[in-house]
Design a protein around this nucleic acid. Structure first.
Length: 477
RNA sequence: GCCUCCUUAGCUCAGUUGGUUAGAGCGUCGGACUGUUAAUCCGCAGGUCCUUGGUUCGAGCCCAAGAGGAGGCGCCA
């Protein structure tokens, strides 16, 4: 007899068939009904046992969390609440679960509590849904790029380049920290280190992806990224996953189109393939919001937000237009902003981004053409001499989900900008070579994967959408 | 890194102006019941009130420091 997943059983409705299932007990009622879940799907399969056929000591071992195997006949359910149930003829306990110490109960737990038992939280409905959706998003991203002729590129995790310019890095070393080899002048002798030079964990695969795009035309990376920033927010992690496409012969508008198409494709994919999980998370959020004051509730439900995002064009405006809107906005005039919007050239604060996305446009916004002073050295300088061809996509509740740009492909402009910004040109000879030999216009962006999962699941803390979050002071599990 | 708030039973939380023995729901454990839907009913047990120090005749409650958690800001994806 073949074992079948609960997902498969619930889909096929093969009544009258003898089959075998394995899973974990979610609840056991009336000494008769076992709700069995194997993680393949949100729903449970109801197992029905005749308790007169089993020893009382055996019945006691059917506890919440226990791993069991059951054989029986699938029949139309005799009770209401489910369409089918398995009439069990043989039951085996594969792994006991002591209810007096097992932390998960058949009741609602707070996300904060579950974060402390991240090794067990997969067993809850909420986290089952989150990680099935995370998987679906992940695969949809590969599907999207593959179907458009992109090549999946593995850029290095360890990098010796300290010029990526995207924040603090984690150093990688095999030196004995209790006995660090020194040069005569007292500085650290990195010749003794594994790579014979300082090395770090990557903060971005972009620069390497550009090199590949200069030959393969369309590439993307999808891998872990590390930032040693002391960021303590529900939107930041020290280790997160990022998607970074890089496209030759593309300008900033192609770049915006690509990002918008990608986001819509993967969100639509989850709406189609994970409807049960989304329904669960949607209802969970509605229930949760009943506790909140009206002003703090979402105007749209999770499902409505996703539909809205897929069905509407993202608003595209320039930084300059954004400043005008903000200057003339009610909160700015009434002094409601903590940071009043006054002059062109300063970076937008998150309260400003929130206003644009959540109040003014009420939809995803693509902001472009930022002042060059507040953006990275590799971004293409616009004709006005003041701005660069940068673009950020802002999502409601999440903030910046995508950051990208058309890259500076003109060698002289790139070099002078690097010198202005104190980027060591000698060390970056390999990057500059792409501008020296057969340079061409190209563009790309970085999409924060966990921020995407946040938006799609409606969760509000990024530590709840990655299995084992890493953040300052925490690397448990 | 800065600011605000929180920490009471396994979990979620009450706890009056500082006043005897710190409470509830759920869970656990014991019993009853058995076509249930986070089953239901009865009963028992369960506490370093985060830690340390201070004020006071007396501290879960007031003060200080520390630890842990959450949110806001900055950095960004």
């Amino acid at each position: 007899m073949t074992t079948r997943s609960i997902k498969n059983i619930l889909q096929t409705e093969d009544f009258g068939i003898q089959l075998k299932v394995q899973g974990w007990v979610r609840s056991f009622r009336s000494n008769r009904f076992i709700a069995l879940n194997d993680g393949s799907v949100q729903g449970n399969l109801q197992l029905v046992i005749d308790f007169t056929q089993f020893e009382e000591s055996f019945i006691r071992r059917i506890a919440v969390g226990a791993a069991i195997e059951a054989e029986g006949i699938l029949i139309a359910s005799q009770g209401s609440g489910q369409t089918m149930e398995l009439q069990v003829s043989k039951l085996t306990i594969l792994g006991d679960c002591d209810p007096s110490t097992y932390p998960l109960q058949p009741k609602k737990h707070s996300l904060e509590f579950l974060r402390q038992i991240a090794h067990l939280r997969f067993r809850t409905n909420t986290f089952g849904a989150i990680f099935r959706i995370r998987h679906t998003l992940s695969f949809a991203i590969h599907e999207f790029f593959n179907s458009r002729g992109f090549y999946y590129l593995h850029t290095p995790i360890i990098t010796a380049s300290d010029a990526e310019g995207a924040g603090e890095m984690f150093q990688v070393t095999t030196l004995d920290l209790n006995n660090i080899p020194k040069n005569e002048d007292g500085s650290i002798n990195f010749k003794e280190d594994f790579f014979e030079r300082p090395a770090n964990l990557t903060v971005s695969g972009q620069l390497e992806a550009e090199l590949a795009a200069m030959a393969l035309s369309k590439v993307y990376t999808f891998g872990p990224t590390f930032r040693a920033e002391n960021s303590n927010t529900p939107r930041h992690l020290a280790e997160f996953w990022m998607i970074e496409p890089e496209v030759a012969f593309a300008d900033i508008h192609d770049n915006m189109n690509l990002a918008e198409d990608l986001l819509k494709y993967v969100i639509q994919k989850v709406m189609t393939d994970c409807s049960d999980d989304l329904k669960f998370l949607n209802d969970r959020e509605l229930e949760d919001e009943k506790q909140k004051p009206l002003a703090e509730r979402n105007e749209l439900s999770l499902l409505e937000r996703l539909r809205f995002c897929v069905e509407n064009n993202f608003e595209r405006i320039s930084y300059t237009e954004a400043i005008d809107i903000l200057k003339n906005s009610n909160p700015n005039k009434k002094g409601k902003f903590q940071f009043p919007v006054e002059k062109w050239g300063t970076d937008l604060q998150s309260e400003h981004e929130r206003y644009l996305v959540e109040k003014h446009f009420k939809k995803p916004v693509i902001l472009s053409d930022y002042p060059k002073e507040i953006k990275a050295f590799y971004m293409r300088q616009n004709e006005d001499g003041k701005t660069v061809a940068a673009m950020d996509i802002l999502f409601p509740g999440i903030g910046e989900i995508v950051g990208g740009s058309q890259r500076e492909e003109r060698l002289d402009k790139l070099e002078s900008r690097m010198i202005e910004m104190h980027i060591p040109t000698e060390e970056m000879h390999w990057y500059l070579d792409t501008r020296k030999y057969g340079s061409c216009p190209h563009a790309g962006f970085g999409l924060g994967f966990e921020r995407l999962v946040l938006f799609v699941t409606g969760m509000t803390n990024i530590r709840d959408v990655i299995p084992f979050p890493r953040f300052p002071g925490n690397a448990e599990f």
